[in-house]
């Protein structure tokens, strides 16, 4: 490992970090605007032109509020909860291939921080850790509603992880590799996985909604039943981190969905370009897909009402898991057939 590589990876990490936070911040603005359009309102329009400074105003407000730690809470775990949430939301961005290699300063630079041999399992591992922030925060608050929120979050995440894992297996079967960059390369041009695996896509999409605690699966913070759910006792920037990590993980899971099913940075007609132009267009195409998925996430939130908890469990265990197992078996049989096993 030479110094040049260290420097370029460091710069890449900083850029990805800033982009993730920036997109998450403006997702909050966009979400409120979108909700306003859907509900025939105006939405935030006071701070700056079209209300564009609203996220900054919100951030400043969050910082200046009183930071309160309840007396009977577990102090350290209470502080750790939001941090763990944010960490697990951000860490997946390390293995996402943002674009093909670019040539700059006489070097070939990969637009991916770490090309893990087992990238897709890394995503799954981080997803399964995502529950810790909410669980620890909810338990440490020493509040019944927070505890209920934490328990709901963890049981929901455990249930939907299974179906998610099984759909990941179908993608692994399709591409024959666990490395994300290879999965993206296999979908060159318009050869996207969505055309072969529409059912897997639907299951994975529903599971990502559940894993990011987005509506209609936002039961851990269901206001009408649990006040604020797991973050009832939180205030100031700790609450801000919890809310913000939801938007970061929405951005990251939109990126993961576009990688696994929509070809990542591939776009039709990409063979007409080459070099840095191609890389730039690829990155733009990738972000276009990500924004489309963020839009769909929000669209769903403001259209579909919240599930009841038993309905959520029924959907997870009795519909999505059997469906994903059947899908996996059929995929396996078809692949075996094409490889001439019969």
């Amino acid at each position: 490992m030479d110094t040049g590589m260290l420097i370029e990876k460091f710069i890449l990490v900083v850029i990805i970090f800033l982009i993730s936070l920036g997109i998450a911040a403006y997702s909050t603005y966009f979400e409120r605007k979108l909700a306003a359009w859907i509900q025939d309102r105006v939405g935030p329009d006071r701070a700056g032109k079209f209300g564009l400074l609203q996220p900054i105003a919100d951030g400043v407000k969050m910082f200046f509020k009183e930071d309160f730690i309840p007396k009977n809470s577990d102090r350290w775990l209470f502080i750790m909860g939001p941090g763990i949430s944010m960490f697990t939301a951000l860490i997946t961005s390390a293995i996402i291939p943002w674009g093909p290699n670019i040539q700059a300063f006489g070097r070939t630079i990969e637009l991916q921080v770490a090309d893990f041999n087992i990238g897709i399992l890394f995503i799954f591992g981080v997803v399964s850790l995502g529950v810790y922030g909410i669980m620890i925060g909810g338990w440490a608050s020493n509040n019944k509603y927070s505890l209920f929120g934490a328990i709901r979050a963890s049981s929901q995440m455990i249930s939907y992880e299974l179906a998610m894992g099984i759909t990941l297996i179908t993608i692994i079967l399709m591409s024959g590799s666990l490395s994300l960059s290879e999965i993206v390369d296999k979908q060159h041009g318009m050869n996207w996985n969505i055309f072969y695996q529409p059912i897997a896509f639907i299951i994975f999409f529903v599971c990502s909604l559940a894993e990011t605690n987005r509506a209609p699966f936002d039961l851990p913070e269901c206001e009408s039943e649990l006040i604020g759910g797991y973050h009832t006792e939180y205030s100031s920037m700790k609450l801000g981190l919890f809310l913000f990590s939801e938007y970061v993980s929405m951005f990251i899971s939109a990126a993961v969905i576009s990688i696994l099913f929509f070809g990542g940075y591939n776009f039709p007609g990409m063979d007409n370009f080459s070099g840095n132009t191609l890389a730039l267009l690829c990155v733009l195409a990738f972000f276009a897909k990500i924004f489309m998925f963020i839009f769909i996430f929000m669209w769903i939130r403001w259209t579909i009402p919240r599930f009841r908890f038993d309905q959520l469990m029924h959907l997870g265990w009795k519909t999505l898991i059997p469906l994903s197992i059947i899908n996996m078996l059929v995929t396996g049989i078809v692949i075996a057939f094409y490889q001439g096993w019969f």
């Binding site: 591992g125 399964s128 850790l129």
Partner: peptide
């Protein structure tokens, strides 16, 4: 990580 930290310890 997936099996122990992610599943069993959560339970």
């Amino acid at each position: 990580v997936i099996v122990y930290a992610g599943a069993i310890m959560v339970l």
